[in-house]
């Protein structure tokens, strides 16, 4: 704080200095500014740019186990990318990532919106109930993931037990132990994890819609569905855009849920790009290929981050 004040004083006193001569004042102001920006630069450079650059470089290298000790890793051009694209698991992994992301987003949003609308009415215990719904968000994923592993267990899991007792299924469903069900299972758990985030943001959005609009609409004879369709949804659109793009970026990079529940298995049936990159790098020790998959993932995230920034900028301009 004191520096800005000093700087300003210096600038005013130095103003009448002869033109042409390099005045000390403005220079000091500039340095002061640099001093304030420098820590941020250092931080971004050290913790974002350097790793990012290393990852991009590694994607073009044949980085083997011995590269770690010798430091020698020959450049191989697009070799890693082409090997990854021709990997037998790649197609399935991309499809899994798309299904996982789309499924998670659709249900998280729909259920989150339904709950937000529900809780925007006032009723006894509404507040405490709403807070309770935040629990999935507050629990460490390792804890809730392990609990879900037990719940979804084929033989002794409570979910199968309940479904069998109410005669919805005839045989226990191997949620985590079948290539047909594992993706559904991890998506279900991820939906559960994501609902509170959607609900909280959408609830906030609902609060900002003026109540008079609803009153006017009901005077005009609009029913509940019409009010939702023609007032709530359009006025919620900016918030919706934010929730969906942020949700997408979060979901594409989900790692812990899958790692704890299935490790991407069985037989790669719940593998997404994140777990695929992890497996390549840290299980198979194919660091070049792992980096290549990681870079593809960063590319996807960047595209949607740009979409998000665009959306929020337009929103801000529209708000002005």
């Amino acid at each position: 704080m004191s520096i800005t004040v000093q700087g300003r004083q210096a600038a005013t006193t130095a103003a009448p200095a002869p033109p042409g001569g390099r005045s000390r004042g403005p220079a000091r102001v500039r340095w002061a500014a640099v001093a304030f920006v420098a820590p941020a630069w250092l931080y971004v450079a050290g913790f974002y740019l350097y790793p990012l650059a290393s990852s991009i470089r590694m994607g073009f290298q044949d980085y083997t186990v011995s590269s770690f000790y010798t430091g020698v890793a020959p450049y191989v051009g697009w070799d890693n990318y082409s090997k990854v694209l021709h990997d037998g698991h790649f197609g399935e992994t991309v499809l899994n990532t798309v299904l996982f992301t789309a499924g998670s987003l659709a249900f998280q949003f729909a259920i989150g919106l339904a709950l937000a609308v529900f809780f925007s009415r006032r009723f006894p215990l509404g507040g405490p109930l709403r807070s309770l719904l935040l629990v999935p968000w507050l629990l460490p994923l390792v804890v809730s993931g392990t609990a879900w592993r037990w719940i979804l267990d084929t033989d002794s899991g409570v979910l199968n037990h309940v479904l069998l007792n109410v005669h919805l299924i005839a045989h226990p469903v191997p949620w985590l132990a079948s290539t047909h069900d594992s993706l559904t299972a991890v998506t279900l758990v991820n939906i559960w994890v994501g609902i509170p985030f959607n609900m909280v943001i959408l609830y906030g959005g609902l609060q900002s819609i003026p109540g008079e609009l609803y009153e006017a609409a009901s005077l005009d004879g609009a029913g509940g569905w019409q009010r939702f369709r023609h007032i709530t949804l359009p006025l919620l659109r900016p918030v919706t855009a934010v929730v969906l793009t942020l949700g997408l970026i979060y979901t594409v990079k989900v790692f812990d849920v899958i790692m704890i529940l299935t490790q991407g298995g069985p037989a790669g049936s719940s593998q997404t790009l994140t777990t695929f990159a992890y497996n390549l790098s840290f299980q198979q020790l194919e660091f070049g290929r792992g980096a290549a998959v990681g870079n593809l993932l960063i590319g996807v995230a960047v595209v949607f981050a740009v979409v998000y920034l665009r959306a929020t900028r337009e929103q801000r301009q529209a708000g002005r």
Partner: peptide, 15 residues
């Protein structure tokens, strides 16, 4: 790793 994948594909996927 390839063998582990094959075992899983057979036991969990019916291949």
């Amino acid at each position: 790793q390839a063998l582990a994948d094959a075992i899983q594909a057979v036991l969990a996927g019916g291949t």
